[in-house]
């Protein structure tokens, strides 16, 4: 009880200090606020530069995608590495690889794991519906990845949707059946392949003596007229790499967390 009073006090004091500071903050929706327009007399605002020059530099209308994949390419690359590292960490923490305890821990409900369309009447409607829905979700996810230059979307969002389609299959049918299509060696390998796509595309400009992730140098490879379209095409490649990694790690996290690392039974 004493701990809760102390916690409430410290939280209230923190909130009061933050609210006191809020009075100096810019008004909501003010286009001239420092984050939106920069400080008068100071450095020009980065966001204004991006909005004014992204289309000139890269021919990509979606400024968020261009900043994410081009201007801040290093940041995004290592964010993707963080996601891969999280997947490896979950594998290292949870995954049970010993085979000798297999008979000691049988699947709690054999009817759930030995799922057939005839044998499991509990799941026939949900399972069939989700089986039909999953490829449609995946097609939409591919659209989100590929159309990220022209509308809200991109690698992270599309990757999460692709991962969610596999999670939906595992939830509605059985994890074992989903793992026969997207096995553990597949998804761990694909998670690395995504990083290799991203970093490999970044390394290619170094071949011709330019900087790492300086996609403008790839206009010869993509057979584009100017550097702008090369940057646009490279962004698509980078987004595909991000999507592959995010998809694999999302499914890896679900598979390991829902089965306590055994990849058998589960929800």
């Amino acid at each position: 009880m004493k701990a809760k009073i102390f916690a409430s006090l410290s939280v209230l004091i923190t909130g009061a200090i933050l609210l006191y500071a809020v009075t100096d903050f810019p008004d909501f929706g003010d286009p001239g606020s420092p984050p939106n327009a920069g400080v008068p007399g100071g450095a020009p605002s980065a966001s204004r530069y991006y909005l004014e020059n992204t289309y000139r530099d890269t021919k990509v209308p979606n400024v968020v995608t261009a900043v994410l994949a081009d201007y801040r390419g290093y940041d995004t690359m290592f964010e993707t590495v963080v996601i891969l590292t999280a997947g490896i960490a979950i594998f290292a923490i949870l995954r049970v690889l010993r085979r000798d305890d297999a008979p000691a821990a049988p699947d709690p409900d054999p009817a759930r794991t030995d799922h057939t369309i005839d044998g499991d009447h509990h799941r026939i409607i949900v399972g069939t519906t989700c089986r039909i829905a999953a490829p449609l979700i995946q097609i939409f996810a591919l659209y989100v990845v590929a159309h990220g230059h022209y509308s809200p979307g991109g690698g992270f969002q599309g990757g999460v949707m692709l991962g969610a389609s596999f999670i939906l299959l595992a939830l509605s049918g059985s994890l074992r059946e989903t793992l026969t299509r997207f096995s553990e060696s597949d998804y761990m390998r694909m998670a690395f392949i995504g990083i290799v796509i991203y970093a490999g595309l970044g390394l290619l400009p170094m071949w011709v003596g330019r900087n790492f992730l300086d996609y403008g140098a790839l206009s010869g490879l993509f057979m584009t007229k100017g550097e702008e379209m090369a940057r646009s095409h490279s962004m698509l490649g980078v987004e595909i790499g991000v999507a592959v990694t995010v998809m694999s790690i999302m499914f890896a996290m679900f598979a390991n967390l829902s089965t306590r690392g055994r990849l058998r039974g589960g929800l």
Binding site: L68, T76, E79, V82, I83, A86, V160, V246, I249
Partner: peptide, 9 residues
Amino acid sequence: LTAIVVGVA
């Protein structure tokens, strides 16, 4: 955008 995905991870 990246913070959300890293938060999930």
